[in-house]
């Protein structure tokens, strides 16, 4: 019954002659959280980046809200306002304060009213306990704090889907939990649709509804989260979980 928001069909991605993604197909329902798991180099980041138009793909389709995305820069610019992405290295703009980082895209790209966005930004910053840092520069923040701001920066665009690429991977262990909590709440309270890539099985287990297991650029299985961690369908996924000490 729930609305399908994103659909990927027979997607193939090449780097030069080398194929990084093989015939990827899956779909994502509104409010669903999908975890993409798999060994290093399996193409997880590549897949996420492709879904945000940061990589071009050779053939296959990405369908957003029932409409096929034309692979043109213009179309992707529009889509990216609805599909946000947060990166492992936060990548806040170092020359702008926290607030300026957050306001930039909503006011300049989406041309929304500054005062309104600012109010919203404060509200979002409060939610992640960062409101007191609105006028601080990224360099004065810890990694975990910067990542929270990066999440807020994406949320301020009011995206319908958020892509999260190993957002806890560069953080100290004590920071990880806080970021995971934020993602968990986004799912539970806001029913945000998300795709997350992580090497932390606990994180995936806590927040994901579905798991997409990738290996060597191929989907090995797509399984409901609970089941993936208890009884994965494929041997490779089993092996992977054993290797991850899970």
């Amino acid at each position: 019954m729930t609305e399908e928001i994103l659909k990927v069909e027979h997607l193939n991605k090449f780097y030069g002659d080398w194929q990084a993604l093989h015939d990827i197909s899956f779909n994502l329902k509104k409010g669903e959280v999908l975890a993409i798991l798999g060994p290093s180099g399996s193409g997880k980041s590549t897949l996420l980046r492709t879904l945000n138009g940061l990589e071009n793909y050779k053939n296959g389709e990405i369908v957003f809200h029932g409409k096929k995305v034309q692979p043109s820069p213009k179309e992707w610019q529009a889509i990216r306002q609805k599909i946000g992405m947060v990166f492992q290295s936060y990548d806040l703009f170092p020359n702008l304060t926290v607030m300026q980082n957050i306001l930039l895209a909503p006011t300049k790209v989406q041309k929304r009213d500054r005062a309104e966005v600012e109010q919203e930004a404060h509200h979002l910053l409060k939610r992640v306990n960062m409101d007191q840092y609105a006028d601080t520069y990224p360099r004065e923040l810890s990694g975990g704090q910067q990542q929270r701001v990066a999440i807020v920066r994406t949320l301020a665009m009011k995206p319908e889907v958020i892509l999260l690429d190993e957002i806890t991977a560069s953080l100290d262990p004590e920071m990880v939990r806080g970021i995971e909590d934020i993602v968990k709440k986004l799912s539970e309270n806001d029913h945000m649709t998300m795709i997350l890539v992580t090497h932390q099985m606990n994180f995936a287990k806590r927040v994901a509804d579905q798991v997409l297991f990738l290996e060597k650029g191929r989907i090995i299985e797509k399984t409901p989260c609970e089941q993936f961690f208890t009884e994965p369908q494929s041997e490779r996924a089993q092996q992977f979980l054993t290797d991850m000490d899970f």
């Binding site: 138009g53 990216r80 306002q81 990166f87 806040l92 703009f93 300049k108 994406t154 665009m157």
Partner: peptide, 8 residues
Amino acid sequence: NSGEALGM
């Protein structure tokens, strides 16, 4: 990339 991801 992070600028692009914000739709710029």
